[in-house]
């Protein structure tokens, strides 16, 4: 039995311990904001926060999550999250929207560590998140805007 917390709630899992966290979240816990995009940690659509840091849930066996805290887009909270989501809405970042949960998870983590990110910091945090609609320019802008919002 694997025990972990998901968005603050105690969860346990007794299926195949190799099951990636992504599928535990989606298939077993029915939280579908975290997306499948590649299954090999190339696209970032499955990004969650694991014990406070970004983690690609598609390459995270549930066995390695025992005792950990997992936060998904549905459980995101705090000043950075609010600022990021507000900034995203303000300039209409999403197009198809499918990758945006992962983008937002990465952006929030960036701002938690780097409240005033440079463009290089943004590249460093976000280059692992693919957006096939190429909303990158707005993602960059929204991160700067969120940073300004938090400061102001």
């Amino acid at each position: 039995m694997i025990n972990f917390t998901l968005n603050g709630e105690e969860k346990s899992f007794d299926g195949d311990p190799d099951t990636p966290l992504l599928w535990v979240i989606r298939d077993f816990e029915k939280l579908t904001g975290t997306k499948y995009g590649c299954g090999i940690a190339q696209c970032g659509a499955c990004t969650v926060h694991l014990d406070g840091s970004t983690r690609r849930s598609c390459v995270t066996p549930i066995s390695s999550v025992d005792g950990s805290e997992v936060t998904t887009i549905e459980g995101l909270a705090g000043a950075e999250a609010e600022a990021v989501q507000k900034a995203w809405v303000a300039i209409d970042v999403p197009q198809c929207g499918y990758c945006q949960s992962g983008q937002i998870m990465s952006a929030v983590a960036l701002l938690q560590y780097t409240p005033k990110p440079t463009d290089e910091d943004i590249d460093g945090a976000m280059a692992g998140n693919i957006c096939r609609c190429a909303t990158y320019q707005r993602i960059r802008q929204a991160i700067h805007d969120a940073s300004d919002m938090m400061e102001g």
Partner: peptide
């Protein structure tokens, strides 16, 4: 790595 994408992200 850098905040938001550390080695441990993957």
């Amino acid at each position: 790595g850098m905040p938001g994408m550390m080695c441990g992200t993957c």
